[in-house]
Design a protein around this nucleic acid. Structure first.
Length: 506
RNA sequence: GGUGACGUGGCCGAGUGGCUAGGCAGAGGCCUGCAAAGCCUUGUACGGCGGUUCGAAUCCGUCCGUCACCUCCA
């Protein structure tokens, strides 16, 4: 049985089997966001790649140690500014319209990292084992900078401490950006610190007594450079060598390149074996940006537009992580339907299991085979489109043979839930319950805002309509159906009565 | 200028030499008071041009096109 987990490794430019330092134990670090605003769906595409790596590894029976950081200290918008007066993103966020409600940058960071956790949970991302914050590891960062200085790999100027790239000949091995002249070309528009010894050198520490977030260091008051936090925290929790390091494609250079330099210059051993990068998504064919109006956070879609969170998850993983991906509302709509079918199949499977049904043999073999195919697709460089196709295939089988499926159908759906995370593990039974079982105290929170109705009133209307239908007064019945539809509530008449579900307004 | 990725039917998106991907939309049917959902059936394809081969979407070359990154960014 071939259970190799193959992933594209940016370091070598090809798909390679994951080899672990410690047998059956994955040490995994994934770069998290800077919490200066709500994380957007692009951020989450990247986190979802990490989530799928984690789920796949666990499915193989591996032990996993998953660390993903929260960057809660701003980086300079311009690393090379002479006097470090370039405003950082946290400070800029505080000054913005939205930021005025926060007393200071610390409150702002706390607020947005709490929001991140909430969105993380909504999209059914597995919790990390450790979620370290940069501000809680300043001491360790200072210690590493001191070691780099001691070994002559870093040097100080009047404005800060810099890593000396010339002391690490392998610099550029990840991104291919080896030529100094290319880097000079890249910084052409930037004010260069005249004390820097090499244009490639990057900041480890910035001296600044006026910065909103500052700490005392051997070099006076200031704050750490951006790159040092991740390598330090990764090493603190996972050791000098880790198996997989992941992040967005933009992090390849300079962030990850610099992490490698900082870590390996000191330890002399490879920092991460496998580098995994998620491609940026586009939205409706364009780069996502606030100015083009195609910028979306999870809450924009879920809270404001009523999209099922799992549909957002499914839409975001419907393309393979390193292929160009265009996020569209059409995809999102498809995903909502698919989530509905998945949940429907799950209910059927759960019922079959509760009744202890045996199920027909060939159907059982079929879904068991499909579950293996899902795992195999993910083992092949996280081929999520193929995995999802197999999952939907299985769903179709279950829906088609809903009266004769058994225990294995349940195991299949549990597997899909475990591996892909696209099945609601706690289905809202009320939403799909027959009329006779409708619970009048259903949560009002499920009703979209501004429709002027609470759940009890909806039930009343449904009952009124049922009475009208029984007396064959179809014009009244249809009128009620239309009325509810206007409030994004769609009715379905089944054999066991009428059910309703919320429709998003996308 | 440098680095890298990608081009499959109306749309999204699998498929690394011969064997049905899947979904959405479209068409027809079953079911339904009518819908919706579900089920059944169904058409359309591999950017252009060369080459290798018995045979190429799949390998090679070349051209065209699209996109991303290059110390703000997941």
């Amino acid at each position: 049985m071939n259970q190799e987990f193959r992933l594209f490794n940016t370091l070598h430019g090809k798909v390679e089997p994951l080899t672990l330092i410690e047998r059956d134990h994955l040490r995994f670090y994934s770069c998290g966001p800077t919490v200066y605003s709500y994380a957007h769906i692009g951020n989450f595409r990247s986190f979802l790649t990490a989530d799928l790596i984690l789920r796949t590894a666990r499915e193989l029976g591996w032990k996993t140690t998953y660390v993903t950081n929260i960057t809660d200290v701003g980086h300079l918008t311009n690393d090379d500014t002479m006097d470090a007066s370039g405003e950082d993103r946290m400070a800029r966020a505080l000054r913005s319209t939205e930021g005025t409600r926060f007393a200071n940058v610390w409150d702002l960071a706390r607020y947005y990292s709490d929001a991140l956790q909430a969105d993380w949970h909504q999209l059914n991302l597995l919790p990390p084992d450790v979620q370290p914050r940069a501000t809680e590891h300043i001491r360790e960062q200072i210690q590493v900078i001191e070691q780099l200085l001691d070994q002559g790999i870093a040097y100080t100027t009047s404005s800060g401490v810099y890593f000396s790239v010339s002391k690490f000949p392998e610099y550029g091995k990840l991104s291919g950006n080896k030529a100094a002249h290319a880097l000079e070309h890249a910084v052409r528009d930037v004010v260069v610190d005249p004390e820097k010894q090499d244009p490639r050198d990057f900041a480890l520490w910035k001296k600044d007594e006026n910065h909103l977030m500052q700490w005392y260091s051997p070099w006076g008051w200031g704050f750490p450079g951006w790159h040092i936090e991740c390598s330090v925290m990764a090493q603190a929790y996972l050791g000098d060598q880790i198996d997989v390091h992941a992040g967005g494609e933009d992090l390849i250079f300079p962030h990850h390149e610099c992490e490698i330099a900082q870590a390996e210059a000191l330890t002399g051993v490879p920092f991460a074996r496998h580098w995994v990068h998620t491609r940026f998504l586009q939205v409706e064919g364009q780069k996502m940006a606030k100015r083009t109006g195609n910028f979306f956070t999870v809450r924009d879609l879920v809270q404001d537009r009523g999209v099922t969170p799992l549909a957002v998850r499914l839409a975001l993983i419907s393309g393979q992580y390193r292929k160009p991906f265009n996020f569209t509302f059409s995809t999102l709509k498809d995903s909502e339907r698919h989530i509905g079918r998945l949940n429907q199949a799950y209910s059927i499977a759960l019922e079959a299991k509760n009744q202890g049904k045996e199920g027909l043999g060939h159907i059982q073999d079929d879904v068991q085979e499909k579950l293996q195919m899902i795992l195999r697709a993910l083992l092949d460089d996280l081929n999520t489109p193929l995995a999802i196709a197999h999952a939907l295939d299985g769903v179709r089988t279950i829906l088609k043979y809903k009266d004769v499926v058994g225990m294995q159908a349940y195991e299949f759906m549990e597997g899909v839930s475990r591996i892909l995370g696209i099945v609601d593990p706690t289905p809202k039974e009320a939403e799909n319950a027959p009329l006779s079982q409708l619970n009048l105290s259903r949560s009002i929170g499920q009703v979209p805002p501004n429709n002027g109705l609470d759940a009890a009133e909806i039930d009343e209307l449904i009952k009124k309509r049922s009475v009208a239908r029984q007396s064959r007064d179809f014009s009244t019945a249809d009128q009620i159906r239309d009325q509810l539809l206007e409030m994004n509530i769609e009715l379905k008449d089944g054999a066991d009565g009428t059910t309703w579900e919320l429709k998003s307004n996308i």
